[in-house]
Design a protein around this nucleic acid. Structure first.
Ligand SMILES: [Mn+2]
Ligand SMILES: [Mn+2]
Ligand SMILES: [Zn+2]
Ligand SMILES: [Zn+2]
Lengths: 139, 139
DNA sequence: CTTGTAGTTTAGAATGATTATAAACTGCTT
DNA sequence: AAGCAGTTTATAATCATTCTAAACTACAAG
């Protein structure tokens, strides 16, 4: 268990008890180099089989509330979560149901329109839908 | 019935029979000046009570397939539809669950990042989340 | 105008993701 | 070691959406 101590301390500092289940889920979600985008269903597939589905839901929501994860806007029926909690944007490959990060600095969004009266902007999410470069021409 | 003939002809030209139910739904959705953003539940509230829920779903999906409507990406559990089928973006007021259009030309998105290898960009959706301008200061 | 048929509507059942419930269990303080 | 709040779990409940299959209807053809 590599970052065991880190996870344990972070959980404690969020007021969450570092249980066996939570540490196992931390390992899956956060002990990796790249951003991880996942649905609960995918997490269930890779998690140890003795962690209940209810715990996966509970834990992911607790982690989201503590700011370890964020939720992504998609019209998919399943909710996606993202281990990258920085401001950033996404490519979405609908065929593969896969998200790919776009760093905030790799996309320039000048002159945002003004928020409606009495409202202020909380955040901006850009989703760029991509598909296979279908070079299926007539022939 | 104002645009009766228009709706009737448009339905026919899409291969859809202009039924009583479809014409009533067209009237609700399209006989208005402003874009209409709605969920099936909201449509049910304002539709004549003798149109079944199944027909609302069937009709909205048929209209989407025919290009009269588009679906909006949100992490809400309910699906939103939009009578504005042009390329455009949205403010989203999470408190009111309301979408507000942003015209494509009112937002400038320079230098899009390149699509992942073998993929091409289908479309870009920008969602700007807004909230009440809470001037609830300490006092 | 009839009739035939494909398209449409409908009530109700089924599905599937998510949330709620409440009992058993466990981390942690005393 | 004891006790309690926090956590896990199986299971039921919820709720949006989709499916089913029977009744209905628009409309083309005669
Ligand atoms: Mn959620
Ligand atoms: Mn849909
Ligand atoms: Zn991401
Ligand atoms: Zn819109």
């Amino acid at each position: 268990m590599r970052h065991y101590k880190f996870h344990k301390e972070r959980l404690r500092s969020s007021g969450l008890r570092p249980t066996k289940q939570r540490l196992a889920i931390c390992k899956i979600l956060f002990d990796r180099k790249e951003t991880f985008h996942f649905t609960i269903e995918e997490l269930k597939k890779i998690a140890e089989k003795n962690i209940s589905l209810a715990t996966l839901y509970n834990t992911v929501h607790a982690f989201k509330k503590s700011g370890y994860l964020k939720e992504i806007s998609l019209k998919n029926k399943k909710t996606f979560f993202d281990t990258n909690t920085k401001n950033h944007h996404h490519f979405y490959d609908e065929e593969l149901s896969k998200l790919i990060d776009i760093k905030n600095e790799n996309i320039s969004l000048n002159n945002l329109p003004e928020a409606p009266y009495g409202k202020k902007i909380k955040d901006v999410e850009i989703l760029i839908r991509v598909a296979n470069n279908n070079q299926k021409q007539k022939k």
